[in-house]
Design a protein around this nucleic acid. Structure first.
Lengths: 156, 156
DNA sequence: CTCTTTAATGAGAATTATTCTCATTTGCTC
DNA sequence: GAGCAAATGAGAATAATTCTCATTAAAGAG
């Protein structure tokens, strides 16, 4: 099997006592490559391009395993099901409660807080998620007036 | 129907053009009362104590509605399904990737960031969620050594 | 207070997502 | 390369959520 993947991650799997198998490599590869917001179905499809026989159950099992190992983690955005992302790195979202619109931002003070929390609770912190919830400008405009747009939001 | 609930919320429903019905009042009451981390099944059960005929589909429909209105929002903790909380107020978690342990903390710099983001993106922000992911002290201890505890985490 | 309109409801069917089962395969160690 | 247990794939089973539709009832008009 050809794989151009971080030997480091493979080592982590091996050291934790797990076998290095084609489906696991495929899932790992997919998540490393895309990095963002793939749901189990999409991960299955992409993994099958790498290792055609990959089964759905194995994808779920692998995602659970990689989550346990702190390599990936599920993230819930809007009202979709879970998607998986690399467990390192931070995520910052503004989420509109009304329409579900998501805006990303960077710049975040959380890292310094993270350090403090590491000391305080003894966690070894690898990443964070900071989400603000509210109403986006567009939806505010809609709410404010009693125009046709407003009507569109009322029950049919 | 007897309900000792925030007239304010009822007004918001009414103003948005929705009818005030017993199941909606029941769900609203349950979420107001408990406030935290109830899943749809639990909300159904508790709502039925208030209004016995409440149906499951209606609970889902009401949760969707209340989410749209920014009154509640779903939150995903660990690998359980969604639970619903009041949309106001902040939530701060330390989540262990390995064992799923959750520690709550308060004190959070996010509010000032929230103000800045309101200006920058025009959102009207009502709450936030800040989660740090990492490995809890217990799991670190397990990882570090090659003791019996470590064995327990390896594949059977 | 009664009537009318139409949103909302409950029951259960249908769908979708996830987990489980088990016979078979395959990494890994020696 | 032989042995062993972990890992796998297929599909069954389960759980969670959404949809359908006939019926009910909330809200406004008169």
């Amino acid at each position: 099997m050809i794989h151009s993947m971080s030997t480091d991650l493979i080592q982590r799997l091996r050291l934790a006592g797990y076998k290095i198998t084609p489906p696991r490599l495929a899932v790992l590869e997919v998540i490393q490559r895309e990095g963002e917001h793939l749901n189990p179905q999409e991960i299955l499809e992409q993994a099958q391009m790498i290792h055609a026989q990959t089964g759905r159950a194995t994808v779920y099992r692998t995602l659970e395993l990689l989550t346990q190992l702190g390599i990936v983690r599920p993230i819930y955005v809007g009202d979709n099901g879970p998607t998986y992302i690399r467990a390192d790195g931070a995520h910052h979202h503004l989420v509109c409660s009304r329409c579900g619109r998501i805006v990303e931002f960077d710049a975040c003070d959380a890292d310094s807080m993270g350090c403090e929390l590491e000391t305080r609770f003894g966690f070894r912190i690898t990443s964070h998620l900071l989400e603000f919830y509210g109403i986006c400008p567009q939806c505010q405009a809609t709410d404010a007036s009693c125009s046709a747009e407003t009507m569109a939001d009322l029950p049919d």
